[in-house]
Design a protein around this nucleic acid. Structure first.
Length: 210
DNA sequence: CGTTGGATTGGCT
DNA sequence: GCCAATCCAACGC
């Protein structure tokens, strides 16, 4: 049994917690007892005085969980059809969290396939909306306690790949490089601006020239 | 109370 | 590459 990350792990700035979450394992137990697990491979940090954060304009019914104690799950609904999940960071009253954007499926792949309606492992948890759908996380899981709850938590894992850094997806702010992912990991979402996707080099055959 | 657009995804051109 | 799907929070009047 691997240990869960303690409350103290989350009680820090999101920019510190985010990269350190990579490699750890998100564990989810469904109502029927089915256990699912995925290794965190892509995350983004959202800080209190960050215009790109839901918490920037103060507390509202929707983002209230972000202002609560660290180590809870903040789940929100967006684009009329998707849920995204975050690990709340910093102390109560602060409004800070880490968006969990992608995971590498480890356990319960068949259940994930059923919930996603897709077969390929790389399409199960690669993207914030896909990730929550694969793990069966929605409104009921908002505010779930990752440290002491029994529905979803983060267990200690191992990070092997180096951490890559870039700008966040869908956030119009190129000044904060707060997106972190595991370099070269195939389960990272392609994201819009994406990781510095160095155009797929196709082994050019005969060099055309002129 | 009406309007706007989003921390997205998947399917089609 | 473009765009529809589909809800609702946030904000302005």
């Amino acid at each position: 049994m691997s240990r869960r990350l303690p409350r103290s792990f989350y009680a820090r700035p999101a920019t510190e917690v985010a990269p350190e979450l990579l490699g750890h394992v998100l564990v989810r137990v469904l109502a029927d007892g089915t256990r699912l697990a995925a290794r965190l491979v892509e995350v983004e940090a959202y800080e209190p005085d960050d215009p790109g954060s839901h918490a920037f304009r103060g507390m509202t019914p929707r983002n209230a969980v972000m202002f609560g104690p660290p180590g809870h799950l903040y789940v929100y609904f967006t684009y009329g059809m998707h849920f995204c999940m975050n690990a709340v960071t910093r102390r109560s009253g602060q409004g800070s969290a880490v968006l969990l954007r992608a995971g590498e499926p480890l356990e319960g792949l068949d259940t994930m396939r059923r919930q996603r309606g897709r077969d390929r492992a790389t399409e199960l948890c690669a993207g914030p909306g896909r990730f929550t759908q694969a793990l069966g996380i929605a409104r009921p899981e908002n505010d779930a306690d990752l440290v002491r709850g029994h529905d979803v938590w983060v267990a200690e894992g191992a990070r092997t790949e180096p951490v890559a850094v870039g700008i966040r997806v869908g956030v119009h702010d190129t000044s904060r490089s707060w997106r972190f992912w595991l370099e070269g990991n195939p389960f990272v979402s392609r994201g819009r601006p994406g990781p510095p996707t160095p155009k797929q080099r196709r082994p050019s055959r005969a060099a055309p020239r002129s």
